[in-house]
Amino acid sequence: MMKRIVVLLLIITGLYIVFYQSFQFNGFAFGGSKDGRAELSKTIDSIEINVGSVRTTIIPEDRNDVEAVLTGKGSLTVKKTGNRLLVETKKEMFNWFSFSGKRQLKVYIPKDFNRNMNIQIGSGSLDFSGKSMKLNKLSLDIGSGNVNLDQLEVDEFTHDGSSGNVEIDTLTTKTGTFDLSSGNLDIKHYTGSLNADVSSGKFSVQMDKLNDSIDIDLSSGNVNLDLPDNADFTLNGNVSSGNISSEFPLTTTNSDKKSLKGTHGSGKHKIDISVSSGTVTIN
């Protein structure tokens, strides 16, 4: 009899802990709002945003600190770590009744910040309108989810995407590196060098100006490269299984089933394309 009572008490205690952890914020309202901020001193070289299962919006403002507001369940951290300023969210251990659509994070940053930003998204979504922000480095690491970026000028841009959909409108960079495992990446109004490695998915880029080299390695999927009419380039395209086509008239053309080579205009900038399986269209 005593043993049954002990077991019953253990079960009740366990259930209490589970429900207490699940509903400790705002009862059954799936969490309240959490707020954190930290001053952005001159010693801070980078802002790092590490989030998952949350809808995130980055908002540049006239301010000298970084503030983050999380709505919904989970924890929020805003702190300085060495020369970094970290914004991080975590879900609760027993957060069984949480819906990611209910979780929203707004991150307010100084609009004149011009150093480095590293953004890691496990899942969820990201909206970031740079409003003509100029950054030294911007690194984007996406597990899954949807991302929208626009109006950014970056010396060095890096994108690493596992899956999901990414839309970029107006990106000017000296060097742009894109690694797409699967999903869709759509870029409009791009300027700068371009290095893309597409394992599987759809990669589309429209360039306002061709002022540097392009290197694309496609394992499987589709690539669409939209160049300005007056682009000067030398194309070196090779195919294992798939197709490369160009709507540009090419001179000194060497073309067969496995390759497409030639120049347009002065041929100043190199375009190297390698296709294992898939389709590349240049227009």
Score class of each variant (00 low, 15 high):
I142L: 15
N222T: 13
N236L: 06
K80H: 08
S125R: 08
G164R: 04
R115N: 11
E61D: 07
E48W: 02
S139Y: 07
I168H: 07
F94R: 02
K137C: 01
S199P: 04
K209W: 04
G192K: 05
T56E: 03
L218C: 12
G36D: 04
T13R: 00
N222S: 14
K73W: 00
K80T: 09
I12T: 14
G221E: 10
L76K: 02
I244S: 00
F178Q: 04
V78E: 07
S245K: 08
A196K: 02
D155R: 07
K261I: 11
E92I: 06
G176V: 01
N243C: 06
N136L: 12
N230H: 00
N224Q: 11
V280H: 05
D169Y: 04
S266I: 12
S98F: 01
N238Q: 08
L15R: 06
G265K: 11
A68D: 02
A38V: 00
S276I: 02
S144F: 09
K91W: 11
S182W: 08
M2H: 10
N243A: 06
D141C: 00
D217F: 01
M1H: 07
N236C: 06
T77I: 14
I12Q: 10
G237Y: 04
V6R: 12
G27H: 08
V87C: 10
V78R: 11
M93N: 15
G32E: 12
M1P: 00
D155C: 00
I49Y: 07
T263I: 15
R55P: 03
K134F: 02
S75N: 10
S245N: 09
S144N: 06
K258Y: 00
N165F: 07
A231N: 10
T71V: 07
K91A: 08
V78D: 09
L218D: 14
V280F: 01
L218E: 15
H189K: 13
T56A: 10
I12N: 12
S41E: 11
N184G: 09
G278R: 05
E88D: 03
K131I: 02
G36C: 00
N254M: 13
S245T: 03
S274T: 13
L9E: 10
K257S: 14
T57I: 08
L40F: 01
L210P: 01
S220H: 05
N195K: 06
K209A: 11
T263Q: 15
N136P: 04
T89D: 12
N236E: 14
A231M: 08
G72R: 12
I44Y: 01
F178N: 02
K102I: 12
P110K: 05
S241N: 09
T281L: 08
M93Y: 13
L70M: 06
L86K: 03
E167R: 10
D256M: 00
V223A: 13
E39N: 08
F248N: 06
I109N: 07
D155T: 09
N83G: 03
L85N: 03
S162P: 02
S241Q: 02
V7L: 15
T263A: 15
F178M: 05
L105W: 10
Q206I: 10
K111D: 13
G192M: 01
F97C: 11
L138Q: 03
Y16S: 15
K137V: 01
V198D: 14
G242I: 05
A196L: 03
I282T: 07
L70A: 09
T281A: 14
T81N: 11
L135T: 07
I12M: 14
R103C: 12
L250P: 09
L135R: 01
